[in-house]
Design a protein around this nucleic acid. Structure first.
Lengths: 131, 131
DNA sequence: TATAAAGCTTCCAGTAACAGGAAGGTCAAC
DNA sequence: GTTGACCTTCCTGTTACTGGAAGCTTTATA
């Protein structure tokens, strides 16, 4: 199949597919006589997996490790554990959530008249607001 | 004062200070005979404000608007409302939190044996895990 | 006084994960 | 035969910086 079909099947744009190839996340596909990329069924599976990971906001580097494409490894095997991948991502997400929680509180506090006048954050923002 | 002192007072690196100048967030400072940048007290206040906004993860473009440095405006006035700035950021943060919440649930579900076998996400990940 | 270290300058490259667009070749349909 | 869709490569831009090179000046030390 050509790149447009792979794109449709995986919901990943042609642009992104070429990008993944460039960074070594997808193997270089065969080429037709006219130079067009030719993909196989296994490419659909591999790219679908990548797509799902990206939906989970797992960084490309992490996905690369699990797919075994790093360190000159020619992207053949699946040696690492998907569970670890997911667990690591869950940790990142939890951490990010905690940070956003704190941010939300600070912002809400600033909007609610900034009761905590001891906060330097508050003071500076208000000084400049009064300007 | 020289750039290192401004840096210490505001907790913003010299590198970042020059960057802010480059993108027009800070006005071009006076120069000493040797070419060194020379800053005033008002630069401390302006940069502190920027620093506080960045702590709140407000994008530089938003800060720029509030400080009135856009559209060739020479960075003199503070015309817009800090409240709006904060409210807009609060909205962004809330939205991001909701997304992370959903992500966390999905990831947790995947770790907990992926009960929802109907999810294509689950299936694909598990197929590849079994591989 | 010599020299080394610290601090300043400018400019260039890299980060994450693509998207947009230019310039040009190819293929199918009308 | 020509329009339009699809393919190719290459280059730029995005956000908010950080790191580093090359080359000044200034300050501290031996």
């Amino acid at each position: 199949m050509k790149i447009a079909e792979l794109s449709k099947l995986t919901q990943v744009t042609s642009k992104t597919i070429r990008y993944y190839e460039e960074i070594g996340l997808l193997p270089e596909p065969a080429r037709a006589a006219n130079g067009y990329r030719v993909y196989q069924q296994e490419d659909v599976e591999r790219l679908s997996f990548i797509r799902r990971c990206r939906d989970l906001q797992i960084p490309l580097e992490e996905i690369k490790k699990v797919l075994g494409c790093d360190h000159g490894n020619a992207c053949e095997g699946h040696n690492n554990h998907v569970d670890d991948l997911i667990a690591a991502q869950l940790e990142r997400v939890k951490k990010a959530k905690i940070e956003l929680e704190a941010l939300e509180q600070t912002l809400t506090g600033l909007l609610d008249g900034c009761d905590d006048k001891n906060s330097s954050q508050c003071n500076i923002l208000h000084n400049l607001r009064a300007h």
